[in-house]
Design a protein around this nucleic acid. Sequence first.
RNA 1: GGCGCCGUACCCAAGUGGUAAGGGAGAGGUCUGCAAAACCUUCAUGCACCGGUUCGAAUCCGGUCGGCGCCUCCA
Length: 472
Amino acid sequence: MPVTLYNTMERKLEEFIPIEDRQVRLYCCGPTVYNYAHVGNLRTYVFEDILRRTLEYYGYSVRHVMNVTDVGHLVGDGDDGEDKMEKTSKETGKSVYEIADFYADAFFADTADLNILTPTVACRATEHIDDMIALVKRLEERGHTYTAGGNVYFSIDTFPAYGRLARLDLEELRSGARIEVDSNKRNPKDFVLWFTRSKFGNQSMTWDSPWGVGYPGWHLECSAMSMRYLGEQFDIHCGGTDHIPVHHTNEIAQSEAATGKSPWVKYWMHAEFLLDESGKMSKSKGEFLTLSLLKKKGYDPMDFRYFCLGGHYRSQLQFSYRSLDAARTARLNMSSRVQELLAAGAEPVEVVALSDRAVELRADFIEQIGHDLNMPRALSTLWAILKDTVLSPSEKITLLYDIDKVLGLRIDKIPSLTDEELDEECASLIREREEARRAKNYSRADELRDILKTLGIEIKDTPSGTKWKKIL
RNA sequence: GGCGCCGUACCCAAGUGGUAAGGGAGAGGUCUGCAAAACCUUCAUGCACCGGUUCGAAUCCGGUCGGCGCCUCCA
Protein backbone atom coordinates (compact mmCIF):
# COMPACT_ATOMS: atom_id res chain seq x y z
CA MET A 1 0.00 0.00 0.00
CA PRO A 2 1.44 3.39 -0.92
CA VAL A 3 1.87 6.35 1.39
CA THR A 4 -0.16 9.37 0.30
CA LEU A 5 1.10 12.80 1.31
CA TYR A 6 -0.14 16.33 0.73
CA ASN A 7 2.33 18.23 -1.40
CA THR A 8 2.14 21.99 -0.92
CA MET A 9 3.75 22.54 -4.32
CA GLU A 10 0.83 20.91 -6.14
CA ARG A 11 -1.73 21.63 -3.41
CA LYS A 12 -3.00 18.10 -3.49
CA LEU A 13 -2.52 14.59 -2.13
CA GLU A 14 0.05 12.60 -4.02
CA GLU A 15 1.36 9.09 -3.84
CA PHE A 16 4.78 9.18 -2.27
CA ILE A 17 7.48 7.76 -4.52
CA PRO A 18 11.02 8.41 -3.35
CA ILE A 19 13.78 9.28 -5.79
CA GLU A 20 15.79 6.28 -4.63
CA ASP A 21 13.96 3.02 -4.14
CA ARG A 22 13.69 2.47 -0.37
CA GLN A 23 15.75 5.43 0.84
CA VAL A 24 14.01 8.67 1.80
CA ARG A 25 15.94 11.91 2.05
CA LEU A 26 14.14 14.30 4.38
CA TYR A 27 15.03 17.85 5.38
CA CYS A 28 13.27 19.71 8.18
CA CYS A 29 13.71 23.38 8.99
CA GLY A 30 15.01 23.47 12.53
CA PRO A 31 15.01 25.95 15.37
CA THR A 32 16.65 29.33 15.67
CA VAL A 33 18.36 29.04 19.01
CA TYR A 34 18.04 32.45 20.57
CA ASN A 35 15.23 31.54 22.99
CA TYR A 36 13.20 28.59 24.22
CA ALA A 37 10.87 26.83 21.80
CA HIS A 38 7.20 27.30 22.58
CA VAL A 39 4.70 24.47 22.28
CA GLY A 40 3.59 25.81 18.90
CA ASN A 41 7.11 25.34 17.57
CA LEU A 42 7.14 21.88 19.09
CA ARG A 43 3.94 20.86 17.34
CA THR A 44 5.77 21.10 14.03
CA TYR A 45 8.56 18.82 15.25
CA VAL A 46 6.00 16.32 16.48
CA PHE A 47 4.49 16.35 12.98
CA GLU A 48 7.89 15.79 11.38
CA ASP A 49 8.57 12.97 13.81
CA ILE A 50 5.29 11.31 12.87
CA LEU A 51 6.17 11.68 9.21
CA ARG A 52 9.54 10.04 9.73
CA ARG A 53 8.13 7.24 11.87
CA THR A 54 5.37 6.57 9.35
CA LEU A 55 7.86 6.27 6.51
CA GLU A 56 10.03 3.97 8.61
CA TYR A 57 6.98 1.90 9.55
CA TYR A 58 6.29 1.50 5.86
CA GLY A 59 9.77 0.09 5.48
CA TYR A 60 11.69 3.07 4.18
CA SER A 61 15.07 4.02 5.47
CA VAL A 62 14.97 7.73 6.29
CA ARG A 63 17.93 10.07 6.24
CA HIS A 64 16.64 12.97 8.31
CA VAL A 65 18.54 16.24 8.32
CA MET A 66 17.70 19.28 10.43
CA ASN A 67 19.47 22.59 10.72
CA VAL A 68 20.15 24.46 13.92
CA THR A 69 20.24 28.15 13.16
CA ASP A 70 22.78 29.79 15.39
CA VAL A 71 23.30 32.81 13.19
CA GLY A 72 21.25 35.19 11.09
CA HIS A 73 17.51 35.75 11.00
CA LEU A 74 16.74 39.29 11.84
CA VAL A 75 14.28 40.81 14.22
CA GLY A 76 12.68 43.25 11.81
CA ASP A 77 11.14 42.68 8.43
CA GLY A 78 12.88 43.30 5.17
CA ASP A 79 16.57 42.71 5.14
CA ASP A 80 17.37 45.11 7.93
CA GLY A 81 16.50 44.78 11.56
CA GLU A 82 18.50 43.58 14.48
CA ASP A 83 19.90 40.09 14.67
CA LYS A 84 17.96 38.01 17.19
CA MET A 85 21.06 36.29 18.49
CA GLU A 86 22.78 39.63 19.02
CA LYS A 87 19.74 40.99 20.76
CA THR A 88 19.61 38.15 23.28
CA SER A 89 23.36 38.45 23.70
CA LYS A 90 23.06 42.10 24.55
CA GLU A 91 20.25 41.44 27.00
CA THR A 92 21.98 38.60 28.84
CA GLY A 93 25.63 39.58 28.59
CA LYS A 94 26.49 36.16 27.20
CA SER A 95 28.29 35.54 23.94
CA VAL A 96 26.23 34.54 20.94
CA TYR A 97 27.90 31.12 20.95
CA GLU A 98 27.01 30.54 24.60
CA ILE A 99 23.42 31.49 23.85
CA ALA A 100 23.26 29.19 20.85
CA ASP A 101 24.59 26.25 22.87
CA PHE A 102 22.27 26.90 25.77
CA TYR A 103 19.08 27.08 23.70
CA ALA A 104 20.11 24.25 21.38
CA ASP A 105 20.50 22.04 24.45
CA ALA A 106 17.12 23.18 25.74
CA PHE A 107 15.55 22.42 22.38
CA PHE A 108 16.93 18.90 22.21
CA ALA A 109 15.89 18.28 25.81
CA ASP A 110 12.33 19.20 24.81
CA THR A 111 12.30 16.99 21.74
CA ALA A 112 13.73 14.09 23.75
CA ASP A 113 10.98 14.59 26.32
CA LEU A 114 8.44 14.40 23.53
CA ASN A 115 9.95 11.16 22.22
CA ILE A 116 10.90 12.87 18.96
CA LEU A 117 13.60 10.88 17.20
CA THR A 118 16.94 12.62 16.88
CA PRO A 119 17.71 13.64 13.29
CA THR A 120 20.29 11.57 11.44
CA VAL A 121 22.19 14.83 11.01
CA ALA A 122 21.61 17.98 13.06
CA CYS A 123 23.81 20.64 11.53
CA ARG A 124 24.81 24.08 12.73
CA ALA A 125 24.70 27.03 10.38
CA THR A 126 27.94 28.47 11.77
CA GLU A 127 29.76 25.27 10.85
CA HIS A 128 28.72 25.49 7.20
CA ILE A 129 29.63 29.01 6.22
CA ASP A 130 31.99 27.66 3.56
CA ASP A 131 29.14 25.73 1.95
CA MET A 132 27.05 28.87 1.90
CA ILE A 133 29.81 30.94 0.35
CA ALA A 134 30.30 28.24 -2.27
CA LEU A 135 26.60 28.38 -3.07
CA VAL A 136 26.65 32.16 -3.51
CA LYS A 137 29.67 31.77 -5.79
CA ARG A 138 27.76 29.31 -7.93
CA LEU A 139 24.85 31.71 -8.15
CA GLU A 140 27.21 34.52 -9.05
CA GLU A 141 28.82 32.46 -11.83
CA ARG A 142 25.41 31.71 -13.28
CA GLY A 143 24.41 35.35 -13.25
CA HIS A 144 21.74 35.29 -10.54
CA THR A 145 23.31 37.87 -8.23
CA TYR A 146 24.24 41.51 -8.05
CA THR A 147 26.02 43.59 -5.46
CA ALA A 148 24.56 46.82 -4.17
CA GLY A 149 25.21 48.87 -1.08
CA GLY A 150 27.75 46.33 0.14
CA ASN A 151 25.39 43.35 0.06
CA VAL A 152 25.04 40.52 -2.42
CA TYR A 153 21.47 40.03 -3.62
CA PHE A 154 19.65 37.25 -5.40
CA SER A 155 17.83 38.61 -8.46
CA ILE A 156 14.46 36.89 -8.68
CA ASP A 157 13.96 38.18 -12.22
CA THR A 158 16.65 35.73 -13.33
CA PHE A 159 14.53 32.86 -12.02
CA PRO A 160 11.21 32.72 -13.91
CA ALA A 161 9.65 30.05 -11.66
CA TYR A 162 9.98 32.31 -8.60
CA GLY A 163 7.04 32.10 -6.21
CA ARG A 164 5.38 28.97 -7.58
CA LEU A 165 5.26 27.25 -4.19
CA ALA A 166 3.35 30.15 -2.66
CA ARG A 167 1.42 30.94 -5.87
CA LEU A 168 2.70 34.47 -5.74
CA ASP A 169 1.57 36.95 -8.33
CA LEU A 170 4.76 38.78 -9.12
CA GLU A 171 3.10 41.76 -10.79
CA GLU A 172 0.90 42.28 -7.76
CA LEU A 173 3.84 41.99 -5.46
CA ARG A 174 5.81 44.55 -7.36
CA SER A 175 3.11 47.18 -7.05
CA GLY A 176 1.59 46.19 -3.74
CA ALA A 177 4.61 45.65 -1.54
CA ARG A 178 3.81 46.79 1.96
CA ILE A 179 7.25 46.66 3.42
CA GLU A 180 9.61 49.55 2.98
CA VAL A 181 11.53 48.90 -0.19
CA ASP A 182 15.27 48.58 0.12
CA SER A 183 16.45 51.03 -2.52
CA ASN A 184 19.38 48.77 -3.33
CA LYS A 185 17.02 46.11 -4.63
CA ARG A 186 16.17 45.82 -8.28
CA ASN A 187 13.01 43.94 -7.40
CA PRO A 188 11.34 44.34 -4.01
CA LYS A 189 11.32 40.55 -3.61
CA ASP A 190 15.06 40.20 -4.19
CA PHE A 191 16.78 38.98 -1.06
CA VAL A 192 20.22 39.19 0.46
CA LEU A 193 22.63 36.27 0.08
CA TRP A 194 25.56 37.87 1.85
CA PHE A 195 25.68 40.92 4.09
CA THR A 196 28.76 43.01 4.55
CA ARG A 197 26.85 45.96 5.86
CA SER A 198 24.28 45.85 8.60
CA LYS A 199 22.45 48.88 9.86
CA PHE A 200 23.15 47.70 13.34
CA GLY A 201 26.86 47.04 12.98
CA ASN A 202 28.83 45.39 15.75
CA GLN A 203 27.99 41.96 14.46
CA SER A 204 30.07 39.58 16.54
CA MET A 205 29.60 36.66 14.15
CA THR A 206 31.30 37.53 10.89
CA TRP A 207 33.28 35.60 8.33
CA ASP A 208 35.59 36.48 5.50
CA SER A 209 34.20 36.02 2.02
CA PRO A 210 34.93 37.03 -1.60
CA TRP A 211 32.53 39.94 -1.06
CA GLY A 212 34.08 41.12 2.17
CA VAL A 213 33.72 40.36 5.85
CA GLY A 214 30.13 39.72 6.75
CA TYR A 215 27.51 37.07 7.33
CA PRO A 216 25.07 35.01 5.29
CA GLY A 217 21.49 35.81 4.38
CA TRP A 218 18.78 33.95 6.25
CA HIS A 219 17.70 31.43 3.64
CA LEU A 220 21.11 30.31 2.54
CA GLU A 221 21.84 27.82 5.30
CA CYS A 222 18.95 25.51 4.48
CA SER A 223 19.89 25.33 0.82
CA ALA A 224 23.56 24.83 1.52
CA MET A 225 23.23 22.27 4.29
CA SER A 226 20.38 20.24 2.81
CA MET A 227 22.31 19.85 -0.44
CA ARG A 228 25.47 18.99 1.41
CA TYR A 229 23.85 16.13 3.32
CA LEU A 230 21.11 15.04 0.94
CA GLY A 231 22.37 15.91 -2.51
CA GLU A 232 21.20 18.44 -5.07
CA GLN A 233 17.75 16.89 -5.30
CA PHE A 234 15.92 15.15 -2.51
CA ASP A 235 12.50 13.87 -1.47
CA ILE A 236 10.81 15.88 1.27
CA HIS A 237 11.28 19.31 2.81
CA CYS A 238 9.22 20.28 5.86
CA GLY A 239 8.51 23.33 7.96
CA GLY A 240 5.74 25.49 9.33
CA THR A 241 3.20 27.08 6.99
CA ASP A 242 4.69 30.49 7.63
CA HIS A 243 7.73 29.40 5.64
CA ILE A 244 5.86 28.98 2.39
CA PRO A 245 5.81 32.55 1.07
CA VAL A 246 9.33 33.73 1.89
CA HIS A 247 11.75 31.23 3.36
CA HIS A 248 10.94 28.19 1.23
CA THR A 249 10.17 30.30 -1.81
CA ASN A 250 13.64 31.83 -1.61
CA GLU A 251 15.30 28.52 -0.84
CA ILE A 252 13.84 27.02 -3.99
CA ALA A 253 14.93 29.98 -6.07
CA GLN A 254 18.53 29.99 -4.93
CA SER A 255 18.87 26.20 -4.95
CA GLU A 256 17.44 25.55 -8.38
CA ALA A 257 19.20 28.59 -9.82
CA ALA A 258 22.52 27.34 -8.45
CA THR A 259 22.24 23.75 -9.70
CA GLY A 260 20.07 24.24 -12.77
CA LYS A 261 18.12 21.18 -11.62
CA SER A 262 14.40 21.05 -10.97
CA PRO A 263 12.68 20.09 -8.83
CA TRP A 264 15.11 20.65 -6.04
CA VAL A 265 12.61 19.00 -3.67
CA LYS A 266 9.94 16.54 -4.74
CA TYR A 267 7.45 16.95 -1.87
CA TRP A 268 6.89 20.04 0.29
CA MET A 269 5.04 19.49 3.55
CA HIS A 270 3.92 22.15 6.00
CA ALA A 271 2.50 21.97 9.49
CA GLU A 272 -0.30 24.32 10.47
CA PHE A 273 -0.06 26.49 13.55
CA LEU A 274 -0.98 25.76 17.09
CA LEU A 275 -2.92 28.80 18.28
CA ASP A 276 -3.43 30.17 21.74
CA GLU A 277 -6.35 32.20 23.08
CA SER A 278 -5.12 35.34 21.38
CA GLY A 279 -4.62 33.64 18.03
CA LYS A 280 -1.10 33.25 16.79
CA MET A 281 1.27 31.95 19.43
CA SER A 282 4.01 34.31 20.41
CA LYS A 283 7.13 34.40 22.48
CA SER A 284 6.64 37.99 23.47
CA LYS A 285 3.01 38.40 24.50
CA GLY A 286 0.77 36.52 26.85
CA GLU A 287 1.88 33.32 28.54
CA PHE A 288 5.09 31.97 26.98
CA LEU A 289 3.97 28.37 26.59
CA THR A 290 7.00 26.12 26.85
CA LEU A 291 7.15 22.42 27.51
CA SER A 292 8.92 23.17 30.80
CA LEU A 293 5.97 25.28 31.86
CA LEU A 294 3.56 22.44 31.13
CA LYS A 295 5.77 20.05 33.08
CA LYS A 296 5.84 22.50 35.95
CA LYS A 297 2.04 22.48 35.90
CA GLY A 298 2.10 18.71 36.27
CA TYR A 299 1.62 17.55 32.70
CA ASP A 300 3.64 14.73 31.22
CA PRO A 301 5.26 15.53 27.85
CA MET A 302 3.28 12.59 26.47
CA ASP A 303 0.10 14.48 27.34
CA PHE A 304 1.15 17.18 24.90
CA ARG A 305 2.15 14.63 22.29
CA TYR A 306 -1.23 12.92 22.61
CA PHE A 307 -2.91 16.31 22.35
CA CYS A 308 -1.04 17.03 19.11
CA LEU A 309 -2.03 13.65 17.68
CA GLY A 310 -5.68 14.49 18.30
CA GLY A 311 -5.70 16.99 15.44
CA HIS A 312 -4.50 16.70 11.87
CA TYR A 313 -1.20 18.43 11.11
CA ARG A 314 -2.69 20.51 8.29
CA SER A 315 -5.39 21.99 10.51
CA GLN A 316 -4.90 24.81 12.92
CA LEU A 317 -5.17 23.53 16.45
CA GLN A 318 -6.30 25.62 19.37
CA PHE A 319 -4.27 25.16 22.52
CA SER A 320 -6.18 25.26 25.79
CA TYR A 321 -5.65 23.70 29.17
CA ARG A 322 -9.11 22.22 28.90
CA SER A 323 -8.11 20.32 25.76
CA LEU A 324 -4.77 19.35 27.25
CA ASP A 325 -6.60 18.00 30.31
CA ALA A 326 -8.85 15.92 28.06
CA ALA A 327 -5.75 14.53 26.33
CA ARG A 328 -4.14 13.71 29.65
CA THR A 329 -7.25 11.92 30.92
CA ALA A 330 -7.52 9.95 27.70
CA ARG A 331 -3.86 8.96 27.87
CA LEU A 332 -4.12 7.89 31.50
CA ASN A 333 -7.20 5.84 30.73
CA MET A 334 -5.25 4.18 27.93
CA SER A 335 -2.33 3.51 30.30
CA SER A 336 -4.66 2.03 32.86
CA ARG A 337 -6.08 -0.37 30.28
CA VAL A 338 -2.59 -1.33 29.21
CA GLN A 339 -1.70 -2.06 32.82
CA GLU A 340 -4.66 -4.33 33.09
CA LEU A 341 -3.63 -6.19 29.95
CA LEU A 342 -0.19 -6.71 31.42
CA ALA A 343 -1.68 -7.80 34.70
CA ALA A 344 -3.70 -10.36 32.75
CA GLY A 345 -0.43 -11.82 31.53
CA ALA A 346 -0.31 -10.23 28.10
CA GLU A 347 2.96 -10.77 26.26
CA PRO A 348 3.86 -9.56 22.79
CA VAL A 349 3.77 -12.21 20.08
CA GLU A 350 5.03 -12.24 16.51
CA VAL A 351 3.03 -9.96 14.26
CA VAL A 352 2.83 -12.74 11.69
CA ALA A 353 0.93 -14.92 14.17
CA LEU A 354 -1.99 -12.53 14.62
CA SER A 355 -5.64 -13.46 14.24
CA ASP A 356 -7.81 -12.14 11.41
CA ARG A 357 -9.33 -9.51 13.65
CA ALA A 358 -5.90 -8.26 14.74
CA VAL A 359 -4.69 -8.21 11.16
CA GLU A 360 -7.76 -6.20 10.22
CA LEU A 361 -7.16 -3.60 12.92
CA ARG A 362 -3.51 -3.34 11.99
CA ALA A 363 -4.46 -2.85 8.35
CA ASP A 364 -6.80 -0.02 9.38
CA PHE A 365 -3.97 1.63 11.21
CA ILE A 366 -1.58 1.27 8.31
CA GLU A 367 -4.11 2.77 5.94
CA GLN A 368 -4.83 5.70 8.23
CA ILE A 369 -1.23 6.73 8.83
CA GLY A 370 -0.51 6.27 5.14
CA HIS A 371 -3.33 8.63 4.27
CA ASP A 372 -1.48 11.88 4.86
CA LEU A 373 -0.67 10.96 8.47
CA ASN A 374 -4.20 10.80 9.83
CA MET A 375 -3.31 10.55 13.50
CA PRO A 376 -6.81 11.28 14.86
CA ARG A 377 -8.00 8.18 12.99
CA ALA A 378 -4.99 6.24 14.17
CA LEU A 379 -5.92 7.09 17.75
CA SER A 380 -9.45 5.85 17.17
CA THR A 381 -7.92 2.54 16.06
CA LEU A 382 -5.85 2.55 19.23
CA TRP A 383 -9.12 2.68 21.18
CA ALA A 384 -10.70 0.05 18.98
CA ILE A 385 -7.83 -2.27 19.91
CA LEU A 386 -8.14 -1.49 23.61
CA LYS A 387 -11.89 -2.08 23.62
CA ASP A 388 -12.03 -5.06 21.30
CA THR A 389 -13.89 -8.03 22.73
CA VAL A 390 -12.36 -10.71 20.52
CA LEU A 391 -8.62 -10.11 20.74
CA SER A 392 -6.56 -11.76 23.44
CA PRO A 393 -4.57 -9.56 25.83
CA SER A 394 -1.36 -10.70 24.14
CA GLU A 395 -2.66 -9.73 20.73
CA LYS A 396 -3.71 -6.35 22.04
CA ILE A 397 -0.30 -5.72 23.54
CA THR A 398 1.37 -6.84 20.34
CA LEU A 399 -0.70 -4.41 18.29
CA LEU A 400 -0.26 -1.55 20.74
CA TYR A 401 3.51 -1.90 20.84
CA ASP A 402 3.53 -2.16 17.08
CA ILE A 403 1.47 0.96 16.35
CA ASP A 404 3.34 2.88 19.00
CA LYS A 405 6.38 2.74 16.74
CA VAL A 406 4.52 5.49 14.89
CA LEU A 407 2.50 7.15 17.64
CA GLY A 408 5.52 7.39 19.93
CA LEU A 409 3.44 7.51 23.12
CA ARG A 410 5.88 5.31 25.06
CA ILE A 411 3.28 2.58 25.48
CA ASP A 412 6.07 0.06 26.06
CA LYS A 413 7.18 2.09 29.09
CA ILE A 414 3.89 1.64 30.90
CA PRO A 415 4.80 -0.55 33.86
CA SER A 416 2.90 -3.73 34.52
CA LEU A 417 1.31 -4.18 37.92
CA THR A 418 3.33 -7.27 38.63
CA ASP A 419 6.56 -5.57 37.69
CA GLU A 420 6.12 -3.19 40.56
CA GLU A 421 7.54 -4.23 43.85
CA LEU A 422 5.00 -3.26 46.42
CA ASP A 423 6.87 -1.97 49.43
CA GLU A 424 6.27 -3.60 52.80
CA GLU A 425 4.48 -0.59 54.24
CA CYS A 426 1.82 -0.63 51.53
CA ALA A 427 1.51 -4.40 51.59
CA SER A 428 0.88 -4.37 55.32
CA LEU A 429 -1.67 -1.55 54.98
CA ILE A 430 -3.50 -3.57 52.36
CA ARG A 431 -3.52 -6.63 54.64
CA GLU A 432 -4.75 -4.52 57.52
CA ARG A 433 -7.52 -3.12 55.35
CA GLU A 434 -8.65 -6.57 54.27
CA GLU A 435 -8.86 -7.62 57.89
CA ALA A 436 -10.88 -4.52 58.72
CA ARG A 437 -13.26 -5.32 55.88
CA ARG A 438 -13.69 -8.88 57.07
CA ALA A 439 -14.50 -7.47 60.50
CA LYS A 440 -16.96 -5.08 58.80
CA ASN A 441 -15.01 -2.15 60.21
CA TYR A 442 -15.67 -0.12 57.07
CA SER A 443 -14.69 3.27 58.45
CA ARG A 444 -11.21 1.91 59.18
CA ALA A 445 -11.10 0.25 55.77
CA ASP A 446 -12.00 3.50 54.02
CA GLU A 447 -9.42 5.36 56.08
CA LEU A 448 -6.74 2.88 55.00
CA ARG A 449 -7.80 3.25 51.38
CA ASP A 450 -7.30 7.01 51.68
CA ILE A 451 -3.87 6.53 53.23
CA LEU A 452 -2.85 4.18 50.42
CA LYS A 453 -4.05 6.71 47.91
CA THR A 454 -1.69 9.31 49.33
CA LEU A 455 1.07 6.72 48.92
CA GLY A 456 0.18 6.40 45.23
CA ILE A 457 -1.70 3.12 45.48
CA GLU A 458 -5.25 2.74 44.24
CA ILE A 459 -7.43 0.00 45.71
CA LYS A 460 -10.06 -1.95 43.85
CA ASP A 461 -12.23 -4.55 45.53
CA THR A 462 -13.26 -7.07 42.92
CA PRO A 463 -15.24 -10.31 43.22
CA SER A 464 -11.94 -12.16 43.01
CA GLY A 465 -10.39 -10.22 45.85
CA THR A 466 -8.77 -6.87 46.53
CA LYS A 467 -6.53 -5.52 43.78
CA TRP A 468 -4.24 -2.55 43.75
CA LYS A 469 -2.48 -0.49 41.17
CA LYS A 470 -0.04 2.30 41.10
CA ILE A 471 -1.61 5.64 40.32
CA LEU A 472 -0.04 6.86 37.07
C1' G B 1 -4.72 44.45 -0.78
C1' G B 2 -2.67 39.24 -2.07
C1' C B 3 -2.53 33.84 -0.72
C1' G B 4 -5.03 30.22 2.05
C1' C B 5 -7.94 27.80 5.80
C1' C B 6 -12.10 26.85 8.92
C1' G B 7 -17.51 26.59 10.68
C1' U B 8 -19.52 18.84 12.50
C1' A B 9 -22.84 17.16 19.77
C1' C B 10 -21.65 20.32 26.07
C1' C B 11 -15.87 20.65 24.81
C1' C B 12 -11.80 18.91 21.55
C1' A B 13 -11.81 16.60 16.85
C1' A B 14 -11.82 12.89 12.25
C1' G B 15 -14.55 12.28 7.99
C1' U B 16 -11.57 9.49 0.99
C1' G B 17 -19.94 11.39 -3.06
C1' G B 18 -22.78 5.74 -0.39
C1' U B 19 -25.36 3.96 7.42
C1' A B 20 -21.83 10.88 10.94
C1' A B 21 -14.54 7.86 13.80
C1' G B 22 -12.46 8.67 18.41
C1' G B 23 -11.44 11.10 23.03
C1' G B 24 -13.07 14.19 27.20
C1' A B 25 -17.38 15.63 29.98
C1' G B 26 -22.54 14.13 31.14
C1' A B 27 -26.88 10.64 32.13
C1' G B 28 -28.97 5.70 33.41
C1' G B 29 -27.77 0.65 34.73
C1' U B 30 -24.91 -4.06 36.38
C1' C B 31 -21.42 -4.98 40.22
C1' U B 32 -20.00 -3.04 45.31
C1' G B 33 -20.51 -2.38 52.60
C1' C B 34 -19.28 2.26 50.16
C1' A B 35 -15.99 3.55 46.44
C1' A B 36 -12.95 2.88 42.24
C1' A B 37 -12.33 0.23 37.94
C1' A B 38 -14.63 -2.58 34.37
C1' C B 39 -18.81 -3.68 31.48
C1' C B 40 -23.75 -2.46 29.28
C1' U B 41 -27.00 1.47 27.67
C1' U B 42 -27.50 6.55 26.30
C1' C B 43 -25.46 11.13 24.11
C1' A B 44 -25.83 15.13 15.93
C1' U B 45 -32.23 11.73 11.07
C1' G B 46 -28.13 15.67 11.26
C1' C B 47 -22.68 18.75 9.67
C1' A B 48 -23.28 27.76 9.97
C1' C B 49 -27.24 29.42 6.39
C1' C B 50 -29.55 29.57 1.26
C1' G B 51 -29.63 27.59 -3.53
C1' G B 52 -27.70 24.03 -7.25
C1' U B 53 -25.52 19.24 -9.38
C1' U B 54 -26.54 13.94 -8.26
C1' C B 55 -30.20 7.92 -7.58
C1' G B 56 -27.49 9.75 -3.27
C1' A B 57 -23.95 15.66 -0.56
C1' A B 58 -20.79 17.07 5.83
C1' U B 59 -18.06 15.92 1.25
C1' C B 60 -18.79 18.75 -5.36
C1' C B 61 -20.49 23.95 -7.44
C1' G B 62 -22.41 29.11 -6.51
C1' G B 63 -23.85 32.62 -2.93
C1' U B 64 -24.56 34.64 2.23
C1' C B 65 -23.03 35.10 7.26
C1' G B 66 -19.31 34.18 10.98
C1' G B 67 -14.21 32.97 12.61
C1' C B 68 -8.88 32.35 11.74
C1' G B 69 -3.86 32.15 9.69
C1' C B 70 0.16 33.71 6.54
C1' C B 71 2.16 37.60 3.52
C1' U B 72 5.75 41.39 8.77
C1' C B 73 10.93 37.80 14.12
C1' C B 74 8.41 33.11 15.29
C1' A B 75 6.81 26.31 13.38
